[in-house]
């Protein structure tokens, strides 16, 4: 069964719809799936989530959550979806406990009724339950917001950039929580600008300028990368990247952590036979440019390589 169905959703802003935020987006999410909308700021992630959360209207297209239409059935839909906006939107001057009670009351439930669902998260907040929400750290605010979005036991959870502005440790904890929520059968749609978080989703859609560039499992996205890719490093990374870009065989070269990723012009097909020759040539080229500490490896592309390749081609 499909928990989310989106068909040709379009949304524009500004005079005469000058800014097209979503340009005919279609996808569907299975029940219990953790689906990622991956894209940079301005890609259209927030518009998409707000439409699904019944907070704004699409210009055209249809969308259903649990077979309920986001425009026609918005009232019924609101009681079975949980939404966590990108900007912290709880009451800053209410305490942790008060915020949670408030959201439970709004949905006609009590904290005790669905406590099982939020227990793992709430125990971490409990020491601060009388602290005002505005005085919590970034990671704690996010946990409280998640609790409030879950308190009525929603069937679909919409999370808009839960990892933004949060340090890597808190971010990892948050993703661990999402994995646990999946085991309750909750369908989760999460947006993020962090490409590395794609790997934590069952399936992802790469969103750019209001369009979907690719949609698949993280492995499927990676497998679609069709150029030979090398990880290269030397003592002088800045000069290395410049020099690699001028190498005749180079299609693109960008920094990737401690290595530079070099993609070649040619296709991956039949490349394995030539790989050793190409690597030797590359080594020689870099030596002739006086690089030291050279290392050249075959690299496996990540989702980020795929995103870069598909935005560069446009």
């Amino acid at each position: 069964m499909q928990a989310i169905v989106v068909e040709q959703i379009t949304k524009s802003y500004g005079p005469k719809g000058a800014v097209k935020a979503l340009d005919g987006i279609s996808f569907s999410v299975d029940k219990g799936e953790l689906f990622g909308i991956i894209g940079p700021d301005g890609a259209g992630k927030t518009s998409l989530l707000r439409i699904l959360a019944t907070l704004i209207l699409p210009d055209a297209g249809e969308a259903y959550l649990q077979d309920l239409h986001v425009v026609r059935d918005y009232k019924r839909l609101r009681s079975l979806l949980g939404y966590m906006p990108g900007r912290f939107s709880l009451y800053q001057d209410l305490s942790v406990q008060e915020n949670l009670s408030f959201f439970a009351a709004v949905f006609g439930t009590r904290i005790e009724d669905n406590y099982e669902l939020i227990k793992d998260i709430y125990v971490q907040l409990e020491p601060f339950k009388n602290r005002r929400a505005g005085a919590l750290s970034g990671g704690m605010k996010q946990k409280l917001a998640l609790c409030c979005a879950l308190i009525h036991k929603p069937e679909v959870l919409l999370l808009d950039e839960p990892g933004t502005g949060v340090d890597p440790v808190s971010r990892k904890e948050f993703w661990d929580m999402l994995q646990r929520l999946k085991s309750w059968g909750i369908t989760i749609l999460v947006s993020t600008p962090n490409m590395d978080e794609a790997e934590l989703c069952d399936r992802v859609a790469l969103l750019h300028n209001g369009r979907i560039l690719a949609m698949d499992t993280p492995a499927g996205i990676r497998d679609s990368y069709d150029r030979p890719l090398f990880a290269v490093r030397s003592a002088d990374m800045y000069r290395l990247i410049q020099d690699l870009r001028h190498w005749p065989g180079a299609y693109s070269c960008y920094a990737f952590g401690e290595y530079a990723h070099l993609a070649l012009h040619q296709s991956l097909q039949g490349f394995d036979k030539q790989a050793d020759t190409v690597m030797a040539e590359l080594q020689q080229y870099l030596e002739s440019h006086h690089h030291t500490g050279i290392e050249v490896l075959r690299a496996a592309p990540g989702v980020e390589d795929c995103f870069i390749a598909s935005t560069k081609d446009r």
Binding site: P193, A255, F307
Partner: peptide, 20 residues
Amino acid sequence: SGVDPLTRRQFWDLIYEAAA
């Protein structure tokens, strides 16, 4: 923060350049 991966790298090119 929040910038697409390609732009992020172009931005780092500027950082490297300034450092140089």
